[in-house]
Design a protein around this nucleic acid. Structure first.
Lengths: 189, 189
DNA sequence: CCATGCTACTCATAAACATGACTAGTCACA
DNA sequence: TGTGACTAGTCATGTTTATGAGTAGCATGG
């Protein structure tokens, strides 16, 4: 029951349709969760059955009818309970790290390729988070916003997402450098 | 098929029993994967059936007989293929981030408690990684080791684990500060 | 001398997560 | 006028990951 709470948390600031939610999750909900649209629709159905969210139909003229969901009091209570329960330690699950761990036994060239790709991806995320954070805080400074703004939750998680991706980018760069250097050293023999 | 490759990568530098592997994974295999012993035993069985690892029985005098596993050529080939396949973007899946995302709607005190706990946990990991890295590079400097050492894979992933936990610790500290400040601001009203 | 904890596993089951395939109307663009 | 992309979903199935419970001998400490 983990996606469940991620969905609840995402629905906190305003009504969303399953489709909109799916887009938010595709971006990665500030990088700490990822899910396919189908999973979200299924989760929303479960949440509604459990009375933690309610949906209302919105008939649109030109587009398909959609259902907007919001969190109920029961849903909020559930989140409170969840927040109070002890959290599992976080983990990164990352194919790329598995590959690098095997670096001494697999082809260096493909690793460098993938690290380059990942660095670019991380940079794109960094830019995205930068924009998101700026738009959340408006013209205030970060400190100002964090002190007096309302809805700082998404901002705080955004900060973690940003620094995570900076960490990814920098580590990729470093790793690429190391692997390249070793390639040239070997080439000299 | 993800744990599968994590296990293969972990077995690369030497034979391990399921039990030893489990301990390595409990530490978090340099933080990029986590699994229960049962999962690992099951995975080892599957890997052996697939011919990617082989185990040999080691009868011990005072302790239960164990089976040490090592990667076969087929396993290495599998890892090569895996390394060449495009990786999914990494993600953090973290209950704590979900909770902080809901920070504006849940009890601040419990959040601060959990963030404090996590910060301590992160610090413990940082110390652990520090030790691991030092012991891997011996008396060489990091640059020296990375240039000329053999088996730099685990070292490189260790670096990522280290910086990830530093990011966690720093973010927890920052978030705690922010939440505390807001508490006192509110208390004044 | 008994409780606790470590080594070393197995078995069964449950929960969570991921995927492919499908419907069906609208819109923009060439 | 047809091609592809976007909105807004559903259904079914498969894979992966997680958990609880159990076995069994040896070691350590009070």
């Amino acid at each position: 029951m983990a996606l469940r709470h991620a969905v609840l948390a995402a629905l906190l600031d305003g009504e969303l349709s399953g489709y909109e939610l799916a887009k938010a999750f595709d971006v990665g909900v500030a990088n700490f969760w990822y899910a396919q649209p189908q999973q979200l629709y299924a989760e929303l159905t479960r949440l509604e059955k459990a009375g933690l969210v309610v949906g209302r139909e919105v008939v649109q003229e030109t587009r398909p009818t959609k259902r907007l969901f919001h969190v109920t009091d029961a849903g909020l209570a559930e989140l409170e309970d969840f927040a109070a329960a002890s959290a599992k330690p976080s983990f990164v699950r990352d194919d790329l790290l598995v590959k690098v761990r095997a670096a001494d036994h697999v082809d260096t060239a493909v690793l460098i390729e993938q690290l380059t790709e990942r660095a670019a991806f991380a940079q794109a995320k960094i830019d995205l988070f930068g924009k998101l954070l700026r738009s959340m805080r408006g013209d205030r400074t970060e400190d100002e916003f964090l002190r007096h703004g309302d809805r700082i939750g998404p901002y705080l998680t955004g900060l973690r997402g940003l620094s995570f991706e900076q960490g990814n980018r920098d580590w990729c760069a470093r790793t690429i450098t190391v692997l390249r250097e070793r390639q040239t050293v070997r080439a000299r023999h």
